[in-house]
Simulated assay, not measured.
Amino acid sequence: MGRKKKKYVEDHIFRIYPDYPLMVLDKIAWAKAGANDPLHFHYYLEIGYCYEGQGTIMSEGKEAAFSPGSISLVAPNLLHATRNENGVYTMWGYLFVDLEDFVKLFSFIDERMHLKLCRQLFYGIQILDERKHGQITSLLKQIFKAADEKKGTYKVQIMNMLCAFLFMLYDVLEHDHMAEEEAVSLPLLPAIDYIFDHYMEQIKVGELAAMCHFSESHFRKVFQKMKGLGPVDYINCIRVREACWRLQNTMEPIRIIGEKCGYLSISSFERNFKKRMGVLPAKWREERRLYRKKERGEYEIKKILVEEQK
Rank of each mutant, 00 (worst) to 15 (best):
K7L: 07
Y8N: 09
E10L: 12
E10I: 11
D11K: 02
H12Y: 13
R15F: 00
D19S: 11
P21W: 12
L22W: 03
M23W: 06
V24K: 05
A31V: 06
K32C: 08
K32T: 15
A33N: 05
A35R: 13
N36E: 11
P38E: 11
F41M: 05
L45E: 05
C50W: 10
Y51D: 03
G53K: 00
T56G: 04
I57T: 06
M58D: 04
E60D: 14
G61Y: 02
K62Q: 13
E63P: 00
A64N: 05
F66M: 00
G69V: 03
L73Y: 01
V74E: 00
L78Y: 08
N84I: 02
N84E: 07
E85L: 12
Y89T: 07
T90D: 02
D101R: 08
V103G: 00
K104L: 13
L105T: 07
F106V: 03
D110Y: 06
D110N: 14
R112L: 10
M113W: 12
L117Q: 05
C118D: 09
C118F: 01
I127V: 13
K132Q: 07
K132H: 14
H133L: 10
T137C: 09
F144R: 09
A147N: 06
G152Y: 06
Y154C: 09
Y154A: 11
N160W: 10
A164K: 06
F165K: 01
L166M: 09
D171Q: 11
D171G: 12
E174L: 04
H175Q: 08
A179W: 04
E181T: 13
E182Y: 01
S185N: 11
L189K: 15
A191M: 02
I195T: 04
I195P: 01
F196R: 15
D197V: 06
Y199S: 02
Y199K: 00
Q202C: 09
Q202P: 04
I203V: 04
K204Q: 14
V205R: 02
G206N: 13
F214Y: 15
S215K: 14
E216L: 06
S217N: 15
H218I: 07
V222K: 05
G228E: 07
G230Y: 05
V232S: 10
R239M: 08
V240H: 01
W245I: 00
R246G: 05
L247C: 05
N249A: 09
E252N: 08
I256T: 14
L264Q: 15
L264R: 11
F269L: 01
F269Q: 00
W284V: 04
W284C: 04
E287K: 13
R288D: 11
R289E: 10
R292T: 11
R292F: 14
R296E: 08
G297W: 09
E298I: 06
K303G: 07
I304L: 15
L305P: 01
Q309E: 11
